[in-house]
Simulated assay, not measured.
Amino acid sequence: MSPNALIPSHRKPRRSASSRALRAGVTGGFLTLAVTGATVPANAAEKPVSETQEMPTITAALATSAAKSADAAQQAAYNYERQALQDATEAKADEAAGKAKAAAEKKAKAEAEAKKAAEEARQEKEAAQARASRSETRSALSAVSDSSSSSSSSHATGSAASLVSFLKSQLGKAYVLGSSGPSSYDCSGLTQAAFSQIGIDLPRVSQSQSTTGTQVGLGNLQVGDILYWGSAGSAYHVAVYVGNGNFIGAQNPSTGIVERPLSYDMPTGAVRVL
């Protein structure tokens, strides 16, 4: 037997060492670790954990967060595009409204100018008609005056002269409504009293006197013609034409019985009873 047979060996026995390697994997959204055993030599040096540990894998929560961020970015882009379209539409609508307003204002201005022009034309027409009417009145008065001057000697005799004489004798007397003389008269009372002096019986009121006899034009008056104001049959005032473009009548309470030219108050018409 060898003298060293009973001496324990100082050599370290060979042993199996299990080294653990971490394997990381994502299964169903969870981090799983697989531990495997490997037989390595006993004298193999173990590496530091920092050299063998793998980087952690992105978890499901991180993935969900990233997806939400992407959705938010996409929604923001969509909102921006929609707002841009809305702004463009509103801008076009504002532009169209502005054009419509300008067109309406232009049309209103044109209508106002046309209305103004029409009104001016109407006023000018009325002014021309008024001038023509005044011219006709002056012509009628001139014709009356000429006619009276040329025929005064023949017409101012007899009954007409007596009529005029009576009327002139009443000048200055008072006007009293409903009175027929001898100290005061109203308009129809005076004419009735005057014509009664030459044997002509007239109705009492001016309405009836305006239809007695024959209607004559104001351009063809003769001494003794009855003048009336208002329409025939509804006259509100009467007087008597005395020649030379004048008439005598009981005018009103403030003037009494006076002699006035036709231009003082142009009558509407006349009737002839002589």
Rank of each mutant, 00 (worst) to 15 (best):
A232P: 05
N246D: 14
G230D: 10
Q75C: 04
K173N: 11
E51W: 01
G249A: 06
T36C: 05
T255A: 01
S183L: 02
S151G: 14
S165Q: 12
L262A: 03
A174S: 08
A130W: 02
S206Q: 01
Y78F: 06
M55A: 11
A143L: 14
A88E: 12
E119Q: 15
S9G: 09
L62V: 07
N252G: 10
S149C: 09
A93T: 10
Y264I: 07
R260Y: 02
S210D: 01
Q86D: 14
A132R: 10
P261M: 09
A84W: 00
I58E: 10
G181T: 04
A93M: 13
A44P: 00
S150H: 04
K168V: 00
P182G: 13
S150P: 00
A235W: 04
G25R: 13
E105K: 15
K115F: 05
K92A: 12
A77M: 01
V26G: 08
A118C: 01
G256N: 05
L177V: 07
A61K: 09
L262I: 14
E46G: 09
G29D: 04
K99N: 11
L141V: 13
S69E: 13
F30P: 00
A96C: 07
T211M: 13
V176I: 11
G25I: 04
V238Y: 00
A97K: 15
L171N: 03
L167R: 13
L167V: 09
Y78T: 14
R122W: 07
S183W: 00
L22I: 15
L31I: 03
D201G: 06
G243E: 03
A5T: 08
V40K: 02
E119D: 13
Q207W: 00
P261A: 07
E46H: 07
A235Q: 03
A91R: 13
G213M: 08
V49C: 09
A174R: 13
A239W: 02
G25V: 13
Q53N: 05
A235T: 06
E120S: 07
E119T: 13
R272K: 03
Q251W: 13
A45K: 12
K125H: 06
H237E: 05
E113M: 10
Q209S: 02
E259T: 09
L62P: 00
V26P: 00
H155N: 05
Q222K: 12
R23V: 14
T59W: 01
A70T: 11
T157R: 04
A104R: 03
S50T: 10
G98P: 01
K106Y: 06
A70S: 12
L227M: 12
V238P: 03
N4T: 15
Y228I: 08
S149H: 12
S254W: 06
I7K: 10
A270Y: 01
K173V: 01
L218H: 03
A193M: 05
R82Y: 00
V271G: 05
I7Q: 11
L177K: 10
A143N: 08
A66T: 10
A239K: 03
T268K: 00
T214A: 07
I226N: 11
V144G: 05
Q222P: 00
A93E: 04
A96T: 13
L6F: 06
I248R: 01
S9R: 11
R272C: 08
